[in-house]
Design a protein around this nucleic acid. Sequence first.
DNA 1: TTGTATGCGTTATCAA
DNA 2: TTGATAACGCATACAA
Lengths: 336, 336
Amino acid sequence: MSTIKDIAQYTGLSIATISKYINGGNVLERNRERIAEAIDALDYKVNLAARILKTRRTMIVGVLLPSLTVPFFSTICAIIEELLKKEGYSIILCSYYDDREEELEKLRFLLNQSVDGILLVPQYIGGEDINAFSELRERKTPLVLMDRSIPGCECDRVLADNSNATYDAVEQFVVNGHKRIGIIIGPPEISTAYERRVGYERVHHDYAIPVDHALIRVGDYSIGSGYSAMSDLLNMENPPTAVIGTNHEMTMGAITYAYERKMRIPGDISFIGYDEIQLTKIINPPITIVMQPIQEIAELCARILLRRMQGDDSSFPLVYRLKTNLLMHESIKRIR
Amino acid sequence: MSTIKDIAQYTGLSIATISKYINGGNVLERNRERIAEAIDALDYKVNLAARILKTRRTMIVGVLLPSLTVPFFSTICAIIEELLKKEGYSIILCSYYDDREEELEKLRFLLNQSVDGILLVPQYIGGEDINAFSELRERKTPLVLMDRSIPGCECDRVLADNSNATYDAVEQFVVNGHKRIGIIIGPPEISTAYERRVGYERVHHDYAIPVDHALIRVGDYSIGSGYSAMSDLLNMENPPTAVIGTNHEMTMGAITYAYERKMRIPGDISFIGYDEIQLTKIINPPITIVMQPIQEIAELCARILLRRMQGDDSSFPLVYRLKTNLLMHESIKRIR
DNA sequence: TTGTATGCGTTATCAA
DNA sequence: TTGATAACGCATACAA
C-alpha cells in the first residue's frame, strides 16, 4: 500500500499539502491535478487506522440487535445504514442471539472498537445487569435505544406506543362482540411485551371484561412459540373467539397453526397480527395488522444519534413514542 | 481513556514492559500483579487503532451478504461469527440489498477498512463486473466465496451440490409417476439458481420426459416471487402435478398460495421445499425438504479463510461441493 | 498556498 | 527481565 509520503515524493509536494488535498483544504489547481494523478497512479488509499488514531473518530456506528434473522430489526438496520452512509458513517453490525451475556459482551466490544455511536435494541439488560450497563455508558459514547427501553436507565430512546397499539387492536375485537380474546405475548422482561400486555389488560378493564389469564400466552417472539401458543389457545376447553399475535414471528406461527387446523380467518377464529412485512404482506385474504412505524423509528434513531455524535447534548434524554396504525381487513368476525 | 503510558507511570515500569505484559511476554510475577492492578484501577483498554497501525492486522473479517433478512444467510453468519470469535476475530457485517453496484461498493469498503479477510456471498458480480472484481482481488486480501460462485473467477469457494440436489428431489417426483413438474427457480445470473435448473433438466433428460418451459418459473428468491410463481403454475391450463421451490423464501411463498387456494399437500399438489429453517420447520404435515449443509458450509468457509489469513496459500483455489440431503416426508403423491 | 515538525498509542528491536 | 527508542501513517499548529 502506498502512503501520503509516497504521493508527496511522486508529486514533489509535502505530505501536509497532500493531507490538505485529501481533507478538502485549499490547494492550487495545478497541484490538485498532480496529486489526483499520483493518487490514481499509486492507487493510494487512506490508512484508516492512522487517521482514527489521529482524529479520535472512527466514523463507525455500532448497531447491536437481538437477532439478525428478525425482519423487523433487519429492516430497521437497512434504513439506518442507508441514512448514515449519506453522512459518511459506516455500520458495524452485531447481534447477541437473544443472549443476555452476549448482549453486554457485544456492547463492550463495540465500545472497545471505539465506535462513534451505538444504536441498541436491548433485550435482557436491566435488573442485575443494569449496573454493568451503566458502567459502560460512562464512557460517554452516544447511545440510542431502539424500539425497546431499559427500565431505570436514562437513555435517548425511540419507541412505539405499544400499549395503545394493542389497546386499539383488542378494542376492535371487543366492539365486535368478542369477550374471550387470546393474546400471544412476548417475554415480560422485554419492554415492548410488557407494554403490549398492559394495553390488552386496559381494554378489559375499560370495558369491564374480566381478564382470563389462561388466555394470555407467553411466547419468546419466535415463530415456533407463536405456533405452540396458538395451539394451546385453540385446544383450550373454552377457547378464545379472537386472538392477537404481538409480533411478526408469532403472528406467522399462529396463522400457520390455524391453517393447519383448517380453521378459517375470520370464519372460525378472529385474528389480528403485527408488522406488515414479509409474510404478513402476502397472506390472503389479508388480516388486520398492527403496523409499527418502522421507517420513522429507524430514521429518528439515526438522526438523534447523529446529533449526539456532533456533540449536541441538549434535552437529554430524548424520548419518542411513535404512534402505530391499525391496518383493517376482514379478519374480525362480528359475533352475537 | 488511559494509555500504556499511564500504566507505566502508575506502576513505575516502562511502557515496553506493559506492552509485553499485554501481549503475553515474560514479566516477573510481582510486576504482573502491579500491572494488572493498574489496568484495573485506570480502566485501561487497548487502543485498537494504534495497534492496527502498528501490526497491520485488524483481526476483523468482513462478511458481505446479499441481504440480512434471508435466514439462510443470517444462519451462516451466526455460525461464522461464533467460530471466528474463538480465534480472536471480529465480524463486520455488510449487505448489499441485492444491488449489483452496492455489492462492489461494499466490497471496496471492506477492503478499504483493511479487514484481514472477506467472506462473500456474491450475487451479480460477473459479466461486465468481473474486471472490477478482479482488480479488487489484487489487493490480496484473502477472500472466500460462500454458497455461490462467480463464473470465470478463481476463488476459494464452498458450494452446495445444487445440481444433484434438485436432481434427487425432482427424481422423487418422477419415480412417483409425475410428468408435469413445476419448478420455481431463482435468477439465472445466480450460480445456485443456474445449477438447480440444470439438475431439474437433467432428470427430464435421463427419464426421457420433455421439458415444458412453461413449467419453469423464474422468481427472485423472495417470498413474494414464490407466491406469484406458484399462482402462475397452478392457474395454468395444464398445471403441474408437482412443484419444487428452490429456496426457503420461495418455498414459503408457494405454500402460502397453495394454502390460500385450500389445496392440500400432497392431496391436490405434490411439493418439495428447500432449507429446513424457520417456517419450513413448523409446517405440518411436514413437507419433503432439500436440506443444505448450512453448518458445514459456514464452518468450512471460516476455516479456509483462517488458513489463508495465516498465510497458507496452498492448493489455491480450494473448491468444495457439499452434498445436500433430501428430508423425506409425505408431500409427494404417487400417481397412476 | 505550502512546508516543517510534532504527536496520536502501540509494537518491536536492541541494549542493558 | 526490563527499558529506551524508533517506527506505523496521518492530521494539524504554526511558520514561511
